[in-house]
Amino acid sequence: MFDSLQERLGSVFDKLKRRGALSEADVTAALREVRVALLEADVALPVVKDFVEKVKTDAVGQDVLKSVTPGQMVVKIVNDHLAEMLGSDHVALNLQVTPPAVIMMVGLQGSGKTTSTAKISKRLTEKDRKKVLMTSLDVQRPAAQQQLAILGAQIGVRTLNIVPGEQPVAIAKRAVQTGALEGFDVVMLDTAGRLAIDEQLMVEVASVRDAAKPAEILLVADAMTGQDAVTVADTFNQKVGLTGIVMTRMDGDARGGAALSMRAVTGCPIKLMGVGEKLEELEDFHPSRVASRILGMGDVVSLVEKA
């Protein structure tokens, strides 16, 4: 799949032996192939459409560098736009509040919230020397609270003691209180997985937010997500209000177009990405790297950059 965009663009531009500025016809033909590539990478259709429009306006009339083909030139322009849309730079977690800074993790079932909670806590503890308290508000999934407790023991981070039967809002309040009383810098709230269309659970998570006043509300989303990414991100953003996104399973071979979709509909920065099951497998999000991954054209991009 990676090579097919290059091949397609190759055949589009083979016909063009001349150099000089990119004509509207060249660009339109090239962008048809780019559109398919983005859709195959799971970028959501409305986002693809906007994107292609924007690139078209910018690309028409640009001079083609001597040492590259018009196709490569278009890819470079597309890639730059992608990177820009994904966010120009890495945005760090916001902990600049009166402690404890509360970080709430939300998302669909199985997206990687609990694992990411532990990964972030480990990083904050070890790298940033923060005192972190982890708390599971997941009273839904069997053994969810236990899962976080086990992870806490593995990384040496304290988890709030489990009170059987206690409901999410009450747990959240107790966590923040404990955090404040015992001098924690950060309180991590891991929530149960929920569907964007589950009204009741969306109301619940909004009440948790109101009770805990988080500095960060992170949507944890799977890099393999398809077209539904826009609905999920948009709904969570509207119902809960997001401050950032964590993309998990970036260690897979998905092109990860969901990152672009989610960023585009929420305007929220992608702050971190999960690159494995182990608790140290968390990385800062690098827009340019992810841009070339979505496009599947990393080589061309570096070629043009060198030209």
Binding site: D42, L108, T225, D253
Partner: peptide
């Protein structure tokens, strides 16, 4: 997972 996009083909 039904939420999966085109990567399901590779999976």
């Amino acid at each position: 997972d039904a939420t999966t996009g085109q990567n399901a083909l590779s999976q």
